[in-house]
C-alpha cells in the first residue's frame, strides 16, 4: 500500500508513514506530556477514586483518585526514556564490540563473541530480571539492565555487516593506499552499515519497550509513584474486572506504541531493502 497523494511522499510505504506518525506522537507526549497534563499526576483525590471515564476525567481515575489521562501522558516520558535510553546504551556498546570484533577477527573476535554467546544463552526477559534484581529497581537500573541484555544482538548485527564489507574491493583499495585502521573502520565501513543497523535498532526499540514494561509489571523495573505504564498495570491488575479502565488505558497505550514502532521498522526495512535492489 503506497501513498499516492503528495509528490514527495510518493514512494513511502504506508507502514512507514503511519509508524512514524504514531512514534512521533508518543515522542511528543514524552517531551511535553508533563506540561499538557490537565491534573497533577501525584494528586490524591479519594472522593473521586475509581471513577469511570467522564467529562472531568476523560480516562477515569485510579484507586487513589489520580487522573488517568494525566498519568498516561506523563507516563509516556517514563516509558520512552527507558526504551530509548536502553537502546542507545546497547547501540554504543554493541557498535564498539561489533566493529572491533568484525574488523580485527582472530582471537579478539573469538573471545568477544563467546562472551556475547553466554549473555545470549538467556532469554532476554530473564536476564534483564536478574540484572535488575542485582542492581535494584528504578528507571536508571532498568535502562542499564535492558541495555546490557540487548548489546549482544546489536553487536552481532554490526559484526556481520562489517564482515560482509571487509572483503569489499574498496576496503582493500583503502588498505592498499595505506589508510589507518581507524580510518577504515570509521570512515569507510561505518557509513555503510547504516541500513541493517537502523532496522535492527527499530526492532530493539520495540523489544526494549516490551521488556522494560514487563519488568515494571513484575515490580522490578520502575518504582511507584512513577506513572510508568507497565507499573500501572502490574499494581492494579486485581482491579481488572471491577474497574477495567485502570488497566486498559495503559495497556492500550503500550500496545499502540509497540505497534507504531513495529510499523516504523517494517517500513524502514522496505525502503532500505528497496534502495539496494534498485541498483
Amino acid at each position: 500500500m503506497r501513498i499516492h497523494s503528495l509528490r514527495i511522499l510518493r514512494n513511502v510505504p504506508g507502514s512507514l508513514l503511519v509508524g512514524s506518525i504514531v512514534v512521533g506522537i508518543f515522542l511528543l507526549l514524552a517531551a511535553i506530556g508533563h506540561w499538557l497534563a490537565p491534573y497533577d499526576i501525584e494528586q490524591f483525590n479519594m472522593s473521586a477514586r475509581l471513577s469511570p471515564p467522564s467529562p472531568e476525567h476523560w480516562l477515569g481515575t485510579d484507586r487513589y483518585g489520580r487522573d488517568m489521562l494525566s498519568r498516561l501522558m506523563a507516563g509516556a516520558r517514563e516509558t520512552m526514556v527507558i526504551a530509548v535510553g536502553s537502546v542507545a546504551l546497547s547501540l554504543v556498546l554493541g557498535l564498539v564490540i561489533g566493529l572491533i570484533s568484525g574488523y580485527r577477527g582472530g582471537l579478539v573476535d573469538g573471545a568477544l563473541m563467546r562472551t556475547m554467546d553466554i549473555v545470549m544463552a538467556f532469554p532476554s526477559l530473564l536476564l534483564a530480571l536478574l540484572v535488575v534484581a542485582v542492581l535494584g529497581g528504578g528507571t536508571l537500573n532498568t535502562i542499564l539492565s535492558v541495555g546490557i541484555v540487548f548489546t549482544p544482538k546489536i553487536a552481532r548485527v554490526v559484526r556481520s555487516a562489517v564482515l560482509s564489507l571487509r572483503g569489499a574491493a574498496f576496503i582493500e583499495a583503502a588498505i592498499l593506499r595505506g589508510e589507518s585502521d581507524t580510518h577504515v573502520l570509521f570512515r569507510e565501513i561505518f557509513p555503510n552499515i547504516f541500513p541493517p543497523l537502523i532496522v535492527e535498532t527499530c526492532i530493539r526499540l520495540s523489544y526494549a519497550v516490551l521488556v522494560s514494561v514487563s519488568l515494571s509489571y513484575l515490580g522490578l523495573g520502575a518504582q511507584p509513584p512513577t506513572p510508568e505504564w507497565g507499573l500501572m498495570i502490574g499494581k492494579e491488575k486485581s482491579l481488572l474486572l471491577s474497574a477495567p479502565w485502570v488497566v486498559l488505558v495503559p495497556a492500550i497505550a503500550i500496545t499502540l506504541l509497540i505497534l507504531g514502532i513495529n510499523m516504523l521498522g517494517d517500513g524502514l526495512r522496505e525502503v532500505l531493502v528497496a534502495k539496494k535492489s534498485h541498483d
Partner: peptide, 14 residues
C-alpha cells in the same frame, strides 16, 4: 597499486 575486477565493489557507496 591495484585496479579491481568488480566496478560495483571498488568504490565506497557512501
Amino acid at each position: 597499486q591495484m585496479v579491481f575486477q568488480n566496478p560495483d565493489g571498488s568504490l565506497n557507496p557512501q
